[in-house]
Computed example of a mutant assay.
Amino acid sequence: METRSLENTVIAITGASSGIGRETARALVAASAKVAVTARRQDRLDELVSELGDENVVAVAGDIRDSATSQSLVEAAISKFGRLDSLVAAAGVGLYGSVMDGSDEELSDMVTANFLGTVWSVRAAVPKLREHGGDIVVVASVAGLRGGANEAVYAGTKAAQVVFAGAVDRELRTEGIRVTTMCPAAVSTEFALGRGRTAGDPQLDEYMRPEDIAAAIVFTLQQPRRLRTTQWAMWSSAQGS
């Protein structure tokens, strides 16, 4: 199968200060794309711009729970690079525990970040993607496909992402916009550390790496326009499914 070149394409990425979002930015710039990135931590974004070069990256600090952040991200991409070709919605937070664990505020923040943050970023990107077609990649989780003990609310937010992305794909497919949901199982990142995961846990060494998911995202964006991958679930070989 031939692949499409990503040279000089412009991709917006949420959640780019760490984990999958950060590795996706690195992988896309390595594939000659330009990226517009957002996350809450300005210092992490500054490090990423310094590493990848300000000719390849524009960064906007903000909270994905605020719809204005997504609008600012798209505006920054257009201002810096003149267009927007794709969106990777990778921002999210985790909180593991029983359905009775976590404060009301913590659970509300997770629902807003994981689901509404995805909605806001898609709504901001679609008007620009409609101009010439493009891709939306939503980073969800296998938790959104099957649930699991001690992750009920988190799994609910991921299921909402999965259903939302599938509906948007059906809605926008005829306009040349493909929507893919990435559903990885456990990935070794700082995700949920102190909120159900413990730093230094040997089990983290058995999980997938964020660069594994980033490579899958790049491959998806490189697929010829005649096909679309609507959902991709992936597991570590050491982790039961």
Rank of each mutant, 00 (worst) to 15 (best):
R4L: 15
L6N: 03
N8C: 03
T9N: 05
V10D: 10
I11C: 10
G15N: 03
G15P: 00
A16Q: 05
A16D: 09
S18I: 01
I20P: 01
A25Q: 05
L28P: 04
A30C: 00
S32F: 08
A33E: 00
K34C: 07
K34W: 02
K34H: 14
V37R: 00
V37F: 09
R40T: 07
D43E: 15
R44W: 08
S50V: 08
S50M: 09
E51N: 11
L52D: 12
V57G: 08
V60G: 01
G62V: 10
I64P: 01
R65G: 15
T69W: 09
T69G: 05
Q71L: 08
L73H: 00
A77I: 04
K80A: 14
L87C: 07
L87K: 09
A89C: 09
A90D: 01
A90G: 13
A91F: 00
L95P: 01
Y96M: 05
G97D: 10
G97E: 13
G97I: 11
S98A: 11
D101Y: 02
G102N: 08
G102A: 07
S103C: 11
D104M: 05
E106G: 06
E106R: 06
L107S: 03
L107I: 14
S108M: 03
S108E: 12
D109R: 13
D109I: 09
A113Q: 01
G117Q: 04
T118Q: 01
T118I: 00
V119W: 01
V119C: 01
W120K: 00
S121K: 02
S121V: 10
V122A: 12
V122Q: 02
R123C: 02
V126L: 05
V126W: 03
P127W: 08
K128D: 14
K128H: 14
E131H: 01
H132T: 08
G133A: 05
G133D: 06
I136V: 15
V138E: 10
A140I: 06
S141N: 00
V142T: 15
A143K: 02
G144A: 11
G147E: 04
Y154H: 08
T157M: 07
A159M: 08
Q161T: 10
V162D: 11
F164L: 15
F164S: 00
G166K: 14
V168K: 02
D169F: 02
R170F: 04
G176Y: 02
G176P: 11
R178I: 12
V179W: 11
T180L: 01
M182F: 12
S188Q: 13
E190N: 15
E190M: 06
G194N: 05
G196I: 06
G196W: 09
R197N: 12
A199T: 07
D201V: 00
P202V: 07
Q203L: 13
R209S: 13
R209C: 02
R209A: 13
P210T: 06
E211V: 12
E211S: 15
A214C: 07
A214M: 02
A215N: 14
V218I: 06
F219T: 03
L221F: 09
Q223H: 06
P224I: 01
R226T: 13
T229G: 04
T230R: 14
M234V: 15
W235H: 10
S236G: 10
S237N: 12
A238W: 08
A238Y: 08
